[in-house]
């Protein structure tokens, strides 16, 4: 049996998307912790660059115009009436869905990257390191799995 030709392309599969660079990496799905700090950081970790930049800019705008940070400050020192007053509800109501979306989406992205990586690496090893010339222990001939 002739040896199977080794593929020239090193990475035939990778996560290809219009919004990011093409990658084949393992990513820890606990990335949600980054997204919980600031929407977009998790996407940055998953190298979805355009989404990360978009989420960070829009997140910053929403946080600024909703006066979230002063409200957090007032809440922290216990003046809750002032916190309610300083809030802009029209902007603030964008924030929950935005925040949860960035957490969930970065998690899904990380899981998908990991699955693609596993499949890709398994295929790579099958192509490269399963030569029919390998001599199994205990066999008398000069090859053949």
């Amino acid at each position: 049996m002739p040896p199977s030709p080794a593929p020239i392309v090193r990475r035939p599969k990778s996560a290809i998307s219009g919004h990011s660079i093409n990658v084949c990496h393992l990513r820890n799905p606990l990335v949600v912790a980054w997204s919980a700090i600031l929407p977009g950081l998790g996407h940055l970790y998953c190298v979805a660059i355009i989404e990360a930049v978009f989420l960070m800019i829009v997140g910053g705008v929403i946080i600024y115009y909703s006066h979230l940070l002063p409200a957090i400050g007032y809440t922290a020192i216990g003046s809750l009436a002032q916190a309610k007053e300083v809030f802009d509800p029209q902007w603030m109501l964008n924030l929950p869905s935005f925040y949860c979306f960035s957490i969930y989406d970065s998690y899904v992205k990380a899981v998908e990257l990991n699955k693609i990586f596993d499949q890709e690496q398994a295929q790579y090893f099958k192509n490269q390191y399963q030569s029919p010339l390998f001599i199994m222990p205990g066999s008398n001939n000069n090859g053949g799995i």
Partner: peptide
């Protein structure tokens, strides 16, 4: 040499669930 190495990637068992996926199991 490459001919002296044999790699055996194992298939994964399905039907498992975790609260969180991890870096090695998703």
């Amino acid at each position: 040499k490459k001919e002296q190495i044999l790699a055996v990637p194992l298939g994964k068992k399905g039907e498992t669930r975790h609260i969180f996926d991890t870096i090695h199991h998703a």
